[in-house]
Simulated assay, not measured.
Amino acid sequence: MRVLLIKALLHFFALLPLSIIYSIATLLGQIVARWQTLRITQVTRTNIRFTFPNLSPAAQDILVKQSLIETCKAFSELGALWLWQTDSVLRLVQEVSGETVLQQALQGGKGVILLTPHLGAWELAGLYASSRYPLTALYRPPKLAGLHDLIHAARERAGGHFVPTDKTGVRALFKALHKGEVVGILPDQVPSEEGSGIFAPFFGISAYTMVLVSRLARKTGATVIFTYAERLPKRLGFHIHFLPAPEDIAADNLEIAVAALNQGVEQCVLGNPAQYQWSYKRFKRRPEGAALVY
């Protein structure tokens, strides 16, 4: 039943122009922001309080409201991003910055690790990259198995190859990098497997962070680049950003390397803090003896 309802909502939103989608999402976000007992509101408020302690309570409240509106936009726009024709979606890209960094890195022949945080329209960032470069990306299947085929087809329709987040997927990443291609990873998910992450600072808070990116970069010599698709609400389109990762992301010392990974995510987030997915429990896993955040 849940799968049918979600698919119906996706198809409904896919029928609407982006202006109407965002108007609905803004209204929903405003309602959610006032509903203090909702989990999404509580998690967003907790994350912003911990990561931006220097903001006044009033400024934190404003950011919480903005974040919840952007989160509603992120979910409402999925119908368009997944179900519209590929060319129609790509026409929403109105500006691109830093892509020469990616193009120059590919000329080195060692491949590129493209990192897409949960910022802005990350689905569009992946679609844009796969439409222009040979892309192999890790893919964690949805909890609702009935959505797998829809999501997988949507993400691969521009030519990308999405592989599972297991050993076979990691081998596929190594193979693609050895061919000098691009691989895509979401760098800010809490690793699910034991030993696949270590704790490193993220906005000053100890966060369990994946080690895969740094190990891939160190073993292959691939260039690491961050990318995200920023919403441009006044223009109803998107600005794709490409940013070089901190140099230490491939350091021999894994703690230094993983800390650099989080610094790179922070750099992206600070470009537009409201569009980061603060509703995600980024700090759900804590160091031994540390107090729970949620």
Rank of each mutant, 00 (worst) to 15 (best):
D188F: 04
V64N: 01
V224N: 00
Y280P: 09
A14C: 10
Q66C: 02
H118M: 08
A137E: 08
A222M: 10
N47V: 09
F202D: 01
A176W: 02
P117H: 07
F203P: 08
A260C: 05
E255H: 15
V93Q: 09
S88R: 13
I256P: 02
A259E: 11
Q263E: 15
P141L: 12
F162Y: 15
L55C: 02
H118S: 08
S19Q: 08
E230H: 06
K7E: 12
V163I: 11
V170Q: 04
R49D: 15
L18A: 06
I21L: 00
Q189D: 06
R157M: 12
G195L: 11
S196Q: 13
S130N: 07
I21Q: 06
G29K: 00
G159P: 00
M1K: 05
L115W: 03
A59K: 13
A153G: 05
T165E: 09
I151G: 00
R34I: 14
L9F: 14
V258A: 09
A172Y: 00
P117T: 09
A105I: 01
L127Y: 05
N253A: 08
E247Q: 15
Y208N: 04
G108E: 06
L292G: 06
R49K: 10
F174G: 12
A250W: 00
I225Q: 09
P57A: 05
G79N: 03
G184R: 11
S19P: 03
R285V: 15
T71C: 01
G169D: 00
S76H: 02
I151A: 03
V93P: 07
H161Q: 14
V89D: 05
L18Y: 07
N54M: 12
L83S: 04
L55N: 04
L10S: 03
F202Y: 06
L254Q: 14
Y128M: 02
L4E: 13
G29I: 11
K65W: 00
A153N: 08
A129I: 12
T136G: 00
D87M: 04
K219A: 15
L114H: 00
I151H: 01
L147H: 02
A153S: 10
P57W: 05
M1H: 06
P233E: 02
L78D: 03
L127A: 08
D87W: 00
V89A: 11
P287C: 10
I113Q: 03
Y128F: 10
P53V: 10
Y22E: 14
S56T: 15
G180Y: 05
F203S: 05
T37D: 04
Y128T: 05
A222K: 08
H11Q: 10
L90H: 10
S192K: 12
T44E: 09
I240E: 07
T220Y: 01
N253S: 11
T26Y: 13
L173N: 09
L90D: 13
F202R: 03
F50H: 14
V112N: 01
D61L: 07
I113S: 01
L173I: 14
I249N: 06
M210H: 06
